[in-house]
Design a protein around this nucleic acid. Structure first.
Lengths: 296, 296
DNA sequence: CCTAGCATTCTTAAAAAGTGAATATTAGAG
DNA sequence: CTCTAATATTCACTTTTTAAGAATGCTAGG
């Protein structure tokens, strides 16, 4: 059994047919058929059920499938480990939640690139659940996700601790004032896109305040959001560090929340079993060394 | 990079030379040379340092080496997982300490074989340290070893709890009598071969009794040992369950020890990451179901 | 009862891997 | 210092494996 066979198997299983798989693998049907047949002969069981509109996995195929992915990931890792002579270089795939990417990573990654210019870093932004899955299957070397993460295969370290504050128009300088000065259903919530943890948190907070059905306004950029708050359009929930400058410029009010609402941790996760590349070590040293962890 | 290449690499690394590796792989030198060269080209680094009397691994080679073993183990496991349809069958490699193999396993394995005749079980006996290593590298599916085992990659379950008792000649019916009736340096210790946990324990007990330099007499069989004790040759340390019959036949005295000396656990260990074969599940169900766990 | 989409089979061409002899390199013996 | 034995490498050649393309067979859906 060779890795090519497993790759072929994997693609056929995913695409559900020899023809589609052949296309994806840039080869012809007959070739794929032979590979699958050889694999089935070697293992001694049918891996697919054939029907006229494609193939589906048998029980044996379903059991084999995860191994194909693991073997592929392991072989990739092996090559990287062999190449990795301690000098951070080569590819490094990192994932991040949207907000962290927007707020925290620019400075971190700039520092990282300054220190280790030979690393080709790619950043993928997605939701926490997606990122966890990607790290687990080896697509990503690591990711910044929202706490809590509790998975036996993952190692998590606290990357950032944020204090979330309500960002309100200047005229509301206390929570009481905000409550008094807005409609029954609450102020408009200015939020990032769905899947963002801060957004979920804001919705919890609003619910706790008795504003479960407050209006939502979705924005894509941090500056836009602060601008909208300053213009009196609504309130938002953001890390204090990010909006402190805006407060000092007297554009907005920052309203502190009770600890359970305010505390939020961003974790950096990586696979427990994986070899830690020098590039990844470099990133972690940037994380720790570059004073990026903001105390709550 | 294919699995064959990694196997070739692995053998060359282990044997330290192309010629020896070629022999082991049943092929010719030139072939191995080509494979290694191709692998090095693909990875982009030299994996071996060539000198006139063979080859040794470079840094990159040393980093790659463990992956070769892991990939091989994973591919073996993949095939077994695919073949395993829930009906215990096929090969199952189990390790055990000598003593456990002699004392506990016969009934357990008989029951196991009765229930699952399609499983081809092989039993390897060795020391705990060896067994742990074998389980970790995938050579064994599981092993019975002496507690404590604390390794992140292993899962351990208590298989047997034994009460160890001093087995003494019939005339010593108390510990005091034994102390009084033997020489200053203590009685002869009848022990299994080195590496056996009960032997270590007996040596600790003797040391605690002030007999650090008592004579040792090494025996290979349990019956021989009991016979020697009965003949008044010395004392031994064995699980109570094993020697109870001998006591009832008034051949020997059983002298209980204080709890810390008497308690000993036999663990069954398996790799955490590994797929649990049906055969292995079957063995575990025998362990739990067959009332093999003797309460302390 | 066709037809379109799919898997399989077969033949042939190409690529890869294996073989064996020749060659180069070097440590150690004489 | 030279020779020898052990070793890796190179090269020409053979065998095996794999890929490609055409042809065949199967089946659901119109």
């Amino acid at each position: 059994m060779e890795l090519v066979d497993l790759l072929t198997f994997s693609v056929v299983a995913r695409s559900g047919g020899i023809t589609r798989a052949a296309e994806e693998l840039n080869t012809v049907q007959s070739n794929v058929t032979q590979r699958i047949k050889a694999l089935e002969a070697e293992i001694g069981t049918a891996l697919f059920e054939r029907h006229s509109r494609g193939m589906t996995l048998t029980g044996a195929g379903r059991r084999l499938f995860p191994y194909a992915a693991r073997m592929a990931a392991l072989s990739r890792e092996a090559v990287l480990a062999a190449r990795d002579d301690g000098e951070p270089k080569g590819p490094l795939s990192i994932g991040s939640m949207e907000t962290t990417a927007a707020i925290r990573l620019p400075t971190l990654l700039a520092e990282f690139h300054r220190r280790y210019p030979a690393v080709q870093l790619t950043l993928k932004t997605a939701t926490t659940a997606d990122l966890v899955a990607s790290v687990l299957d080896g697509t990503l070397d690591g990711a910044f996700v929202a706490a809590p993460i509790d998975h036996a295969e993952l190692v998590a370290t606290v990357a950032f601790r944020e204090e979330l504050v309500l960002v309100a128009p200047r005229r509301f300088n206390t929570l009481a004032a905000l409550r008094a000065g807005t409609a029954e259903s609450g102020p408009t919530a200015l939020v990032f896109r769905t899947g963002c943890t801060y957004r979920q948190r804001l919705e919890q907070v609003f619910s706790d305040f008795g504003w479960p059905s407050a209006a939502r306004f979705e924005l894509g950029t941090l500056d836009g959001m602060i601008g909208c708050v300053a213009a009196g359009m609504g309130v938002s929930l953001l890390p204090r560090a990010v909006v402190e400058r805006s407060e000092q410029r007297k554009e907005v009010s920052l309203l502190a929340l009770d600890a359970p609402w305010a505390q939020v941790e961003t974790l950096f996760i990586q696979r427990r079993a994986a070899h830690q590349t020098s590039a990844l070590s470099g990133l972690l040293s940037c994380l720790n060394g570059a004073d990026c962890v903001v105390a709550a």
